[in-house]
Simulated scan of single mutants.
Amino acid sequence: MSDSDTALSAHHFGITVSDLDAAVAFYRDVLGLEVLSEFEVSGEGFATGVGVEGASAAFAHLDADGARVELVSYDPEGADARGGAVNDVGATHLGLAVDDVEAFYESLPDDVETLSDGPQTTASGSTILFVRDPDGNLIEIIET
């Protein structure tokens, strides 16, 4: 794709949530992301575009150091796919970097679910910690 009119660039990373207010609170208060905007979208063009008859949605855009994270809560809500394992085919996760994963882990509220008992250092030398948001979506915290 050499035509500049068709070249792709990153715009946002989307995560579907069941309770937008709870998700925004988690991503803002626990992960420290800045809320950029909150808005609602509906209408035939939206419903057709997302392939869900009669759909409307509430959105929040947050800033992760220049990467836009989009949280979206749909009406009607789709099937519950939360809590899957990171190795499930089709699984996705959001990766966020910190200077000190151990300090981040120690700062987490007690009710935040993690996949391991604290940060782990991989064979490649990366220190990682996977956490789940209120809907069970996976977030990898990696030390840089």
Rank of each mutant, 00 (worst) to 15 (best):
L33H: 03
Q120D: 06
V98W: 01
Y27V: 05
D19L: 11
D75E: 14
H11V: 14
F46C: 01
V24L: 08
V52T: 07
G78Y: 06
V17H: 10
G95S: 10
G54I: 03
E34N: 12
L96R: 06
A58L: 11
H11C: 09
Y74V: 08
D19E: 11
H12C: 07
A58Q: 14
A97G: 05
R82S: 15
G54M: 02
E53A: 15
A79W: 03
P119S: 04
Y74R: 10
V69F: 00
G90I: 13
H11D: 13
A58D: 12
E34H: 08
G84T: 11
L31S: 06
A97I: 09
V98G: 01
V72D: 00
D111N: 15
E106G: 03
V41D: 03
A79R: 09
G95W: 01
S18T: 15
V72R: 05
V50N: 05
S107D: 10
R28N: 05
L33R: 03
D117Q: 13
E102V: 12
D99E: 07
G118T: 06
E44N: 03
G118D: 03
Q120T: 14
A97P: 00
V50L: 05
Y105H: 13
E53T: 11
A81D: 09
V98H: 01
H61N: 13
L96I: 15
A79I: 10
R28P: 04
L94S: 09
V35G: 02
V72L: 14
V86M: 10
F104H: 07
Y105A: 12
Y74N: 07
F26S: 10
P119W: 00
P109V: 05
G66S: 09
L96S: 06
D29M: 04
A60C: 14
A79C: 02
D65N: 13
L94E: 02
A60D: 07
A58M: 12
V52N: 01
G54N: 02
T48D: 12
